[in-house]
Computed example of a mutant assay.
Amino acid sequence: MKVQIYHNPQCGTSRNTLAMIVASGETPEIIEYLQTPPTRERLGELISLLGIPPRALLREKGTPYEELNLGDASLTDEQLIDAMMAYPILINRPIVVTDKGARLCRPSELVLDLLPAPVTEFTKEDGEVIRHGGMPA
């Protein structure tokens, strides 16, 4: 399976995650989900692969989360998915899918456990150095 990343190029976390994937020697399928949102079926598959409830995939910052009253605990999973379908910006990112599983990569270094040959050291956009594989930071 090719590595897939549900990506927003405006998001630093998403850019760092993509850069870690590429630095690890992978050529991922990049899905800019704001331009090409997942189908309802695919969104359900992603939620299932992630092993989280739909509420855990909701993004609040920079979205219509509050205007839509999505913090209301009485909303059903289906209603939350409806909101994500209507407003893809509500889908938190980046989501990465590989043969090893799927993960919401926040923070971005969570992607490293999903890659077959992850880079052992990476410098994020903000200058933070990430070391992987037992190396001290």
Rank of each mutant, 00 (worst) to 15 (best):
N92C: 04
E60K: 15
L68D: 10
N69D: 15
L57D: 06
M84Y: 08
R42N: 12
I89D: 06
M84N: 05
L75T: 08
R106F: 06
G51L: 08
Y65D: 03
P54Q: 07
I95A: 00
P107Q: 06
P53V: 07
L50Y: 00
G62L: 09
C105M: 04
R55V: 14
D77M: 08
A83G: 06
E60M: 15
S74I: 05
I89M: 14
L70M: 14
R106E: 06
P107R: 04
Q79H: 12
P64A: 04
G51T: 11
A56D: 13
E60Q: 15
L75G: 08
I81M: 12
T98K: 05
A56S: 14
I52W: 01
R55A: 13
N69A: 15
R59L: 06
E41L: 13
I81G: 09
L49W: 15
N69Y: 10
S74L: 11
R42T: 15
R106P: 11
R40I: 11
D77T: 05
E109S: 11
T76E: 05
L46C: 05
S48M: 08
T39Y: 08
R103L: 14
M84W: 08
E41M: 10
T63I: 07
T98R: 05
E78P: 12
L68G: 07
D99R: 14
N92F: 00
A73V: 13
E41C: 02
R55E: 13
P37W: 02
R55G: 06
G51H: 12
A56P: 03
I91N: 01
Y65V: 04
D77I: 06
Q79E: 15
E41V: 14
A86E: 15
G44L: 14
E41P: 07
L80C: 09
E78G: 13
